[in-house]
Design a protein around this nucleic acid. Structure first.
Lengths: 203, 203
DNA sequence: ACCTGAACACCGTTCAAGT
DNA sequence: ACCTGAACACCGTTCAAGT
């Protein structure tokens, strides 16, 4: 068929299908991707530079769904809470893909703008400039670690009551409604923000 | 040569070399591994079940270097601080390998014992059982995210002063002595523990 | 028990050839 | 410009054959 009259592929369709595959299998290959798109592997290279670029595009795609308006409309601590949950939700929608994407969070130009608003908000709240970057990185790390956790799905629960009585008690007596991963995010984020508020007050 | 009089390989040497390779390149292949060990790829399968098992062994090897005596000799918050730093140090020694290993932290029997001591310590300190598991998971997530960060090495620093003034200010006015990643760990861990102490006091 | 070497079924990527 | 199909240099893993 050589060149079809209307293009079979475009970048959006490629990224879409790559996400669909890795969401369910935890990974994707160029071969799988091509086969799902009804096309030969080599065809993909007319639209993307290689597998790594597809991964970058997947990350960017997920990043675009993150709410980045928090720091404009809420005080710094409430904004961080909202931003954190929004990040988490964006990655939870693609839990299977997280291992593939989790190397770093999104760091394109739009994401940097979000970090810029965060830096501005933290400084305006009273944190000194030397404190701002560590706070942002720590927040980032916690969110990323938590996103990874939603995927790995708790292998802490194999605790044997005989060998690990306290851990077993903690596992068995956990709250029923929300998932452990969600509760952990709530607890961790709250503690982190409480700690920061006190850091701010103690000066 | 077929079977040599003294074995050329053993599991320790294999894991050792795999770590050495992935520390420097960020990954390893069975082919590379065999070539570094002066042996044919197929020879490795007499000692390990496959590439995935090597990865598990690498994780376990690193896990063994973590100090697990903190909760026996220090109050819960000091113990968590020490354990956190010990985790971080263990993975920082293999920063290049972290992407490969970071799926989950170590969760073998010995690690579960450490979590068990942590659960016991937290409950003894006054936290209710339903709170204990989320605290442990949140701690874990923060440590894991921070370990990943030591590897990715800060791509936040590409901030353009024109586009991202606040972020640039934060980057330029950061503390000189310790690495941003290390400072972030300090700030995040401290805030988290402060938050937990207040959670404990407010009851 | 332990290493070899050939074999199998995969990869990602390149490139000349077609329309 | 866009898809094909052959080609290249890799993978991880299996297995019969040797000692």
């Amino acid at each position: 068929m050589a060149r079809p009259r209307t293009a079979l592929l475009d970048v959006d369709r490629i990224v879409d299908q790559a996400l669909r595959i890795s969401d369910t299998t935890g990974d994707f290959t160029i071969t799988q991707l091509a086969s799902r798109l009804g096309v030969h592997p080599s065809s993909l290279y007319h639209h993307i530079a290689g597998r790594d670029e597809v991964i970058d595009l997947m990350r960017a795609r997920i990043g675009r769904t993150i709410d980045n308006s928090a720091f404009e409309s809420a005080p710094w601590d409430e904004a961080m809470r909202r931003l954190g949950w929004s990040y988490r939700a964006a990655f939870a929608r693609h839990a299977g893909s997280i291992r593939l994407l989790a190397t770093t969070l999104v760091r394109d130009k739009e994401s940097l703008s979000e970090y810029d608003r965060m830096a501005h908000g933290l400084h305006a709240a009273g944190f000194g400039w030397p404190e701002v970057l560590p706070i942002i990185i720590a927040f980032d790390n916690f969110v990323l670690g938590s996103a990874l956790d939603t995927a790995s799905g708790g292998n802490l629960y194999t605790a044997d009551p005989q060998l690990h009585p306290a851990l077993s008690a903690a596992v068995n007596d956990s709250e029923g409604g929300r998932s452990p991963s969600e509760l952990a995010f709530e607890v961790g984020l709250s503690a982190f923000l409480t700690g920061l508020r006190h850091k701010l007050a103690d000066r």
